[in-house]
């Protein structure tokens, strides 16, 4: 595992391409947020985990959902609790502080050391969401009017933001970030990724499976192309099932782990039998 002094070079469970490593390092050095885009399963979420492990920094994860508001990441003022407490004489409600709960961004700012903050799937939220975070991410500080206090990052966190591009992110937001699109790994890189997950599985099987995998991904008109996670599941199933390597190319066992959509399975089976392929089992 890499030492913090030398910058980020991937971790023992994550294969980062060289360009990605370099970009992460510039990001860390400059303290700018890094926006990562890419197909599902290309390791966007895992990147933040990997940086946190490799550089031995604490990780804060803010999972964004369609209902998430920018404010949730800063702090929540639990007025209802306070209102409730107000009915009972035994509680002191004059101290608002006890009703202010910091969100993930707030926690990352308050941390005593440099941490990694993952804002995962930012595109799930409302289109305006990123704009509501412009200042906070730029200046790494925000104001809590209820306390009239400023929360300022003690150490600029390493901010990794992932997006599946379900919505496009606003220009003003992107201008302040560094951006990288993770390309789908090629076969060589995929082999290395598989190896970090299953160092013990026979190489011959891995190679054959990968070859088939890319072939299936190349089939026209699939609704959902299998991704890295599906490949990993499939290889595991093949290994556990003790499948003979020759059989992989001949009949693609456990096709269901790769293609999860019925229509895709149907389409694939039809196409390959039309091409004179072998017999495919769906499970």
């Amino acid at each position: 595992m890499a030492q913090s002094g030398q910058g980020y070079k991937g971790s023992d469970d994550y294969i980062a391409s060289k360009p990605l490593m370099e970009i992460v390092n510039v990001t860390i050095a400059l303290g700018k947020p890094l926006v990562i885009k890419g197909e599902p399963g290309t390791g966007k979420t895992l990147l933040a985990h990997s940086i946190s492990r490799a550089l031995n920094k604490k990780l804060f994860i803010w999972n964004v959902k369609s209902t998430t508001k920018a404010r949730d990441g800063l702090y929540v003022y639990d007025t209802i609790q306070r209102l409730n407490d107000a009915r009972f004489k035994d509680k002191d409600i004059s101290d608002i502080r006890q009703y202010i709960k910091l969100g993930k961004l707030g926690q990352a700012f308050m941390a005593d050391e440099k941490v990694v903050l993952l804002i995962d799937e930012i595109d799930k939220a409302d289109v305006e969401f990123p704009n509501d975070l412009l200042n906070e991410l730029d200046e790494m500080s925000f104001h809590i009017p209820e306390l009239d206090e400023e929360v300022t990052a003690k150490h600029r966190p390493v901010v990794i933001i992932t997006s599946n591009s379900e919505k496009e992110l606003p220009d003003a937001f992107l201008r302040r970030c560094i951006f990288h699109y993770i390309e789908f790994p090629d076969e060589e890189m995929m082999e290395r990724i598989v190896k970090v997950h299953y160092p013990d599985i026979e190489m011959k099987l891995v190679r054959e499976a990968i070859k088939r995998f890319y072939w299936i991904r190349g089939v026209d008109g699939l609704r959902k192309k299998p991704s890295t996670s599906e490949l990993l599941d499939w290889i595991k199933a093949l290994a556990l099932g003790g499948v003979n390597v020759e059989k992989i190319s001949a009949e693609i066992p456990f096709l269901g782990t790769l293609l999860k959509n019925e229509l895709d399975t149907g389409r694939f089976v039809r196409l390959s039998s039309a091409q004179g392929g072998g017999i495919f089992k769906r499970r």
Binding site: S17, K18, P19, L20, P185, D186, E188, M189
Partner: peptide, 9 residues
């Protein structure tokens, strides 16, 4: 000149 993830260096 190995290609890393399609992103050659």
């Amino acid at each position: 000149g190995i290609r890393v993830g399609g992103e050659s260096w």
